[in-house]
Each structure stands twice: as C-alpha cells, then as structure tokens.
C-alpha cells in the first residue's frame, strides 16, 4: 500500500499558479494553516480559492496570492470579519463568486459525484444570481418548477487539516463537526491532508467510532504530519482556537507597517517562526 507521506514543500511543489484550490474547515475552525503558510512562502499566484472562509482566505489575499474567492462568508467566528479579505474586497483587489453556503456545498457535491450541476432553491430571488450571471436555472422535468442549477465546483487541488491520519491517507476528525472536508477531497484532482499526528491504521479506531473516518485513502494524494497545523484556528479536541493570537493577527492587519512586522516574524521572514499551540487540551 502506498506511503503517501510528504512535506508541505512537496504539496506546494504539486500546485501551479492559476489553479483552483479548495480549502477545508469552516471560518476559524480546523483550517490547514500550516499548508496555507507553505503557499504564502511559495511563488504561487493567481489562485482561485474555494472556502468556507476564515484566516486562510485573509492570509492568501494579504499575500497577493488570490485572483478570485469563491465563498459564502469569510469570518473569524469570535471576530466577525477577516480584516485582509475585507481590505481586498474594499480595494477591488479580488474577484468574487459569492454563493449561499448551501449552494457551495451543492457545487462541491456535484463535482464530487461527477454531475454537471445540482438543482436548488437557494439563491433564487437573491442577488447571488445577479452577481453570478453565469448561473442558469433548470426546469423540473416532472413538475415544471424552475430551480437554480448550481454548477459543479471542480477543484484542481484541495487542502484540509484533520486530527489524525495514517500514512496511506485515511484521515479522521475527532472534533464536533467534519465540516465539508471529504467533499473538498472528492471534488479535487489532488487532495492533500495535513494532520496533527500520523498514527498506525489500527490506532484510528481504537477509541473512536469508525464514522470519524470521513476521508479515506482513495480520496487522498498526500498526507503531511503537521502538529499544530491548524493553529490559530481551532482543532478540537487537540486544541481550541488561540483567541489571543487571532486578536494579534487582526490588530496587526490594521496598518501596513504592523502587518509587515507580523509577516516577517511569523510568516515569510527569513527566521519566521509560527508560534506553538498554547492551549493544548489534555488527553
């Protein structure tokens, strides 16, 4: 069986500028932050990012990596708005495709199951259709009702962060919500899973229910062991969101000078060092 372990650098080496990249997690929860930082340090650019957005979107926008954001919201949960996404939008610096969050799921699901579209009511009557003029409706062949045809959201690559995985790509969420990470993997040509710990396969279900294995190896291209890899977003039960560091991120974003200091220190400087998880939850 294939050993799919790789490094974050390996992952970035398989990405190309101009790609459509799906990023798992939700808001400021279980985001693949270590892989996002790898992208920040790379020369990748012109990305289309599909995300239930949080600081992943903010950081990539701040670094000028993004051409287009496909989203339903961008939020840091305990802080309502991401400052960089907000700035990028208000400067007109990024294109957007803004969908109802259920439409986003439908688009990923359609791509996952190789359908061109899935019908929905969500979006009808709203300005989602006004500002996404490519959207079409479809007539129910049985009843004649005219529904919105949410097109498949095909991803060139997906990155997600999970609590555990084995070296073959079977991956596990241990927190309260799997989010849509398995759909991101299925919708993508290549799917990369970072995780807190790579463990032997048998270890995955020693104490956890098999239903926690939403992502399996046939859906995964590579596995990266990245302890603290979701920090400062939450990765329960391994750690909670680092609210102090999230506040520092938002504060630094208020001014180009303080943001440059933040970026040098934590992201892209020669000695950049992302802080360790501080609120580890005891096992």
């Amino acid at each position: 069986m294939a050993d799919k372990r790789m490094t974050g650098t390996d992952v970035v080496g398989r990405l190309r500028s101009g790609m459509t990249l799906g990023i798992g997690g939700w808001g400021s929860r279980r985001k693949p932050m270590a892989l996002v930082r790898e992208i920040l340090r790379s020369d990748l650019t012109d990305l289309t990012v599909v995300s239930y957005g949080g600081p992943d979107v903010g950081l990539l926008c701040a670094a000028g990596k993004v051409r287009k954001v496909v989203f339903g919201f961008v939020s840091l949960d305990s802080i309502a708005l991401d400052p960089h996404f907000r700035a990028a939008r208000q400067a007109g610096a990024v294109e957007v495709a803004e969908y109802d969050e259920g439409m986003l799921q439908w688009g990923l699901y359609a791509a996952a199951v190789k359908l061109p579209f899935l019908p929905t009511r969500a979006g009808l009557g709203s300005d989602v259709v006004t500002y996404n003029p490519h959207l079409r409706t479809v007539s129910d062949p049985y009843d004649g009702e005219e529904l919105l045809a949410m097109p498949a959201l095909h991803l060139d690559a997906a990155i997600v962060h999970m609590n555990r995985a084995d070296l073959h790509g079977n991956a596990q969420f241990l927190g309260p919500d799997p989010y849509f990470d398995d759909l991101y993997c299925l919708a993508a040509e290549q799917a990369f899973v970072s995780c807190e710990r790579i463990v032997p396969t048998a270890e995955l279900t020693r104490t956890a229910h098999p239903a926690t294995l939403k992502i399996n190896r046939m859906m995964v291209t590579g596995v990266v062991e990245a302890p603290g890899g979701a920090h400062f977003t939450s990765c329960v039960p391994d750690y909670e969101r680092d609210e102090d560091f999230q506040r520092a991120y938002v504060t630094a974003a208020a001014d180009p000078g303080t943001w440059q200091e933040f970026a040098d220190r934590y992201l892209t400087g020669p000695d950049a060092q992302w802080p360790a998880v501080r609120q580890e939850i005891p096992a």
Binding site: F71, F73, V74, A80, E98, D100, E101, G102, M103, S126
Partner: peptide, 11 residues
C-alpha cells in the same frame, strides 16, 4: 464596507 457574505440567507 465588506460584511460577512450572504452566508445561508438566500437559502
């Protein structure tokens, strides 16, 4: 002013 985004409001 960029706000949250439409979230689930349309649906």
């Amino acid at each position: 002013v960029q706000l949250l985004g439409v979230r689930g409001a349309p649906g």
